[in-house]
Design a protein around this nucleic acid. Structure first.
Length: 286
DNA sequence: CCCACGACCTGTGGGC
DNA sequence: TGCCCACAGGTCGTGG
């Protein structure tokens, strides 16, 4: 699921049941996700109050009334389910999304107010850790991380600096969380198509004016996705024709063979770049 | 430093 | 129907 907009949507969905609430029961049904959970995971969280639920790039940060912050990353297939007496909700997903398989319910949080939050992750690329809040910014996951794309610190100037003298295409550089933090494969493809920039051309040679435009397109595509409540490929794939509404969600991602939305007459192509699929228009993306 | 590639793990969809 | 391969939103470590 998760690039920045999806994680932000999940954060918004979890905040009402977690922020200001005390965890009364925490369960780790296996000792590890992608990495081993810290030995004191359950003990440190049980009885703690989540003071604030924040997001940094694709990470969720649950600030505790203790010295540590609970850091969570959804990897590729992480999902949260909120269960309360009045019903079940999965932030960032649509109501008709398939139920998660209970065998992948790895972590369960229960709050004093009676909410149960379950983390599911079939591929287990996600991870959680407890990190000292005072030095969180020095932790390898966060030290050197680039600016938030929706912050003032991000713009054409930042891209110009990060792209200078680089021969790699802008596609792979925008996926580098040190350049800008929170973009993934989908939104990088989308933003480059909007900006009409080739994913493959040497990034160092792109003009400042075009980078200004690219930064603006990045902001716009993320803002639109957050406003739409994130996106879920799983749902997109399952519902295809039934939901015209999704036709507008992505302009290039997973649209190989379809006409380019920029009206240039081009047809969306797919190429593997650095091991990942890149979708782009060979006609207008120069 | 730069860059490409494989590994991590499980599930799903397409082709035969 | 069944089987096998390709591929999937992210990140990290290795080696040229």
């Amino acid at each position: 699921m998760p690039e920045l907009p999806e994680v932000e949507t999940v954060r918004g969905g979890l905040a009402p049941v977690l922020e200001g609430h005390r965890l009364t029961h925490v369960e780790a049904r296996r000792p590890d996700l992608r990495f081993p959970l810290p030995a004191n995971f359950v003990q440190m969280l049980t009885g703690a109050v989540i003071v604030k639920l924040e997001r940094r790039a694709k990470y969720l940060l649950a600030r505790l009334d203790r010295e540590d912050t609970l850091v969570m990353h959804l990897g590729m297939s992480g999902r949260f389910e909120i269960s309360r007496p009045d019903g079940v909700e999965r932030p960032g997903e649509f109501h008709y999304a398939p139920d998660p398989d209970p065998k992948h319910a790895h972590i369960v949080f229960q709050t004093e107010a009676g909410a149960r939050v379950t983390y599911y992750d079939p591929r287990r690329f996600g991870f959680m850790d407890l990190i000292n809040t005072a030095t969180l910014h020095l932790h390898p996951w966060f030290a050197g991380m680039g600016p938030e794309p929706l912050s003032e610190a991000f713009g054409g100037a930042r891209l110009k600096e990060a792209f200078r003298a680089r021969k790699q295409g802008p596609k792979t550089l925008l996926l580098d969380q040190r350049v800008v933090a929170g973009l993934g494969n989908i939104y990088v493809c989308e933003a480059l198509n909007r900006a009409r920039i080739s994913p493959f051309k040497p990034a160092g040679g792109i003009s400042r004016a075009r980078l200004d435009r690219l930064a603006q397109d990045i902001r716009e595509v993320l803002t639109e996705a957050i406003a739409a409540g994130g996106s879920t490929l799983r749902d997109f794939a399952k519902t295809d024709g039934a939901l015209g509404y999704f036709q507008h969600r992505f302009r290039v991602y997973d649209r190989e063979g379809e006409p380019c939305a920029n009206g240039c007459g081009g047809v969306i192509a797919r190429k593997v770049q650095a091991g990942r699929s890149t979708f782009y228009c060979p006609v207008c993306q120069k």
